Simulated assay, not measured.
Amino acid sequence: MKKTSLIKKLEVYKKEFDEISKSIIQPNIISDEKKYKILLNKYKKLEKIVSIYEKYKKKLVFLKEINFILENDSDTEMRELALTEKHKVLSNLSSIEKESYNLLFSSKKESEYQIDSEDHRNAVILELRSGTGGDEACLFVEDILRMYTMYFKKSGWKYKILHVQKGGTKGYKEVILDINGEKGVYGNLKFESGVHRVQRIPKTESQGRVHTSAITVAVFPRVKDIEVNINLSDIKKDTFRSSGSGGQHVNKTESAVRLTHIPSKITVECQEERSQHKNFEKAISVLRSRIYQREKEKRLKKISTKRKSLVSTGDRSVKIRTYNYPKNRVTDHRIHKSIYNFSEFMNGNIQQMIDMLKFFEKK
């Protein structure tokens, strides 16, 4: 979210705070014990937000002064000093923003945020696929896979890889995972669906040019068989030899399974288990989730004009995030928010971004 948008939101709370400040000193309010307590509680909560608002405004004014020096001052020493101060201010602003989002987000009752009735689901299917960029995109799938698995561990969630297709030289063309955790796994991961773009200098680039590659991420709630009834006569089953892990076993038996749902033409592969039966069960689970998601997207498209949502119809062709390695920056384009702790983000510390997405979806 742009800084001006956050300021506007904080200004609304500041205005409410000023009004309550005037009200609670009025004799008719003081004499009404019940009303006075209600207003006093609001006053105390808003006081924290207003304090952050004042601090945030001062930092923005200071940043404006620094930018003026950088743009107009020809003194090298002064510019270097201003640049050092700018980095400090940007870091301070990021911390204040995080504090603001946490405070504003926690100040609302959870019931006010149940826009997506599926946010509570504790099991999801997550799919990563390489897009434009060839081998570099496959490498980025591997990087994002690492980022997510570290996030799962920090969140106390369990995950299992259902399917892997390796890239031409390194990395992965496709990875499918099954994630389980406590309530709200889907409510956190649903924002990850879309195109993730990376800008960096590939190791094979001799002239130091920055290349842009992209991968797609898809997140589906894992659904039960009673929610999506699949007629087995509508499924075409193919078996083949696994190309994944398994040692000599992969060359001897056709344990890998490919399922095609004829009515929807959705195809699913699973090859991570030694048993064809287990691969079939997992493939059915993924197929069921994809069919469910497709029907859900159809429903959302019908009501998309009535519903303001960051996830909208779940269109996975939309570019949602850019990972810029040279500038040490991760930017989410839906809320125009950048995070500069790049290494921490890639090490699984993505909850701050998810919390901001949650907050601005419901505002």
Rank of each mutant, 00 (worst) to 15 (best):
L357M: 10
G156P: 05
G244A: 08
R146H: 13
V318Q: 12
E142L: 09
I354L: 13
G156K: 08
Q114A: 08
I215R: 00
G184S: 11
K337H: 11
D238V: 10
S289D: 03
Q199V: 11
G168S: 15
N67G: 06
V164C: 09
S304M: 06
R146A: 11
Y325F: 15
E19H: 09
L232T: 15
R307M: 12
I25V: 12
R316N: 08
E227W: 07
S242G: 15
K327C: 08
I335M: 03
S107P: 02
R222S: 15
R197W: 08
M353N: 06
V175M: 05
Y43K: 13
T216I: 10
K203M: 14
G244K: 04
S264W: 01
V318R: 07
S243Y: 11
L81H: 12
P202I: 03
I303E: 10
V311M: 04
W157Y: 14
M353G: 04
L93V: 06
F62G: 05
T169M: 12
G208C: 05
E77C: 04
S309I: 02
K362N: 14
F360H: 08
V286K: 00
I354E: 03
L104D: 05
T149I: 13
R222Y: 07
G348H: 02
D225V: 12
D73H: 03
V89W: 04
G246Q: 06
S289P: 03
V89M: 04
I161F: 04
S206Q: 13
N188W: 13
T253L: 12
V217Q: 02
T84Q: 14
K108D: 12
Q351Y: 09
F360L: 10
S317G: 01
Q207S: 14
